[in-house]
Simulated scan of single mutants.
Amino acid sequence: MEIRNSTSKDIDEIFRLYKIATDFQKTKFTVHWPEFEQSLIATEIAEYRQWKILIDNKIACVWVTTFSDPQIWEEYNADPSVYIHRIATNPDFRGQNLVGSITEWAKRFALENNKKFVRMDTVGDNRGLINYYEKCGFTFLGLSKLRNTNGLPSHYNNATVSLFQIEVVI
C-alpha cells in the first residue's frame, strides 16, 4: 500500500469512485454527494490536496485535505487542523480498513504540518458511520447545524453535520 497525491491522470478514476459512492449513498440515505465540478478536482490536484491509496498500482481510495474549513467548523477553525473530505473507496478494496490507514497517515501528516487536530465531518446523524469513525480513532464531537453554506457543495445546504476529531501530539 502506498499513499500519494493524485494527479490529473487520476481524474476519470476519481469521478468513477465518486459516482459509485454517490450511488451507494442514494440507496441508504436521503442526502448524497452532488456531481462535483471537474474544475474543483483539478484545483485540489494542483494544490496537492487530493490523495490516493495505491494497492498493486490500482487506486483503492481517494480523499481530499485542507487546512481550513470555516463554514463547517466555525470558531473551531482557528485550531491548527487537517480536515479530511470526500473519502471514496474502490469497491474492489472494501473491507481493508482503508479509513484506518487514512487516519494513521493523517495523524503523521498533521504532525509534519504542525497541526494539532485531524478533523472530519459527515452530513446527518448516521449512527453506523459514527461508530465506524470512532473505531478508526476519531472522537465524535456531536451534531452541528450549519449556518452559512454559501459556496459549499449542495449536500451541505440546510444540513446538520456530525463532527469528528483526533488530537495529535505536536
Score class of each variant (00 low, 15 high):
L143H: 13
N113L: 11
I130G: 00
F138L: 00
M120F: 08
N148A: 03
R147F: 09
G142S: 10
L141T: 13
M120Q: 07
D92K: 07
L152K: 05
T149R: 02
I84K: 01
Y133Q: 01
K115S: 08
A106C: 13
N150G: 10
L98C: 10
Y156Q: 06
N90G: 03
W105F: 12
N90L: 02
C136D: 02
L141Q: 11
I130T: 05
T149S: 05
G95F: 09
M120I: 15
Y132H: 07
E112Y: 11
D92A: 07
G100P: 03
Y156P: 02
P153N: 13
K107I: 08
D92S: 06
N148T: 14
E112F: 09
K107R: 14
T89E: 03
K145N: 06
L141C: 13
G95Y: 05
N126W: 00
E104K: 14
T103C: 06
N157M: 11
S101P: 01
E112S: 15
T122Q: 00
F140L: 09
V99F: 01
D125E: 06
Q96S: 14
N114L: 08
H155F: 09
L111P: 07
I87N: 06
G142W: 06
N157G: 09
N114I: 14
K135V: 11
R108F: 05
L111E: 09
K145Q: 06
I84H: 01
T139C: 12
T122W: 01
S101H: 14
N113K: 12
N114M: 09
D125Q: 11
F117H: 08
D92V: 09
W105C: 08
M120S: 10
R147W: 07
S154I: 14
Y132K: 07
Y156T: 09
N114G: 12
R86S: 13
F138S: 05
A106Q: 02
I84C: 01
S101I: 15
L152I: 12
L129Y: 01
G95Q: 10
F140R: 08
F117K: 04
Y156R: 00
N114D: 11
R108E: 07
I102A: 03
R119H: 04
V99E: 06
F140V: 15
H85P: 02
L98D: 00
R94E: 14
N90D: 05
G128R: 12
N90Y: 00
E112P: 09
N150C: 11
F93W: 05
K107M: 07
M120C: 13
T122C: 02
R147K: 15
F93A: 03
K135M: 04
G124Q: 02
P153S: 13
G137W: 00
P91A: 08
I87H: 09
N150T: 15
L98P: 04
A88V: 11
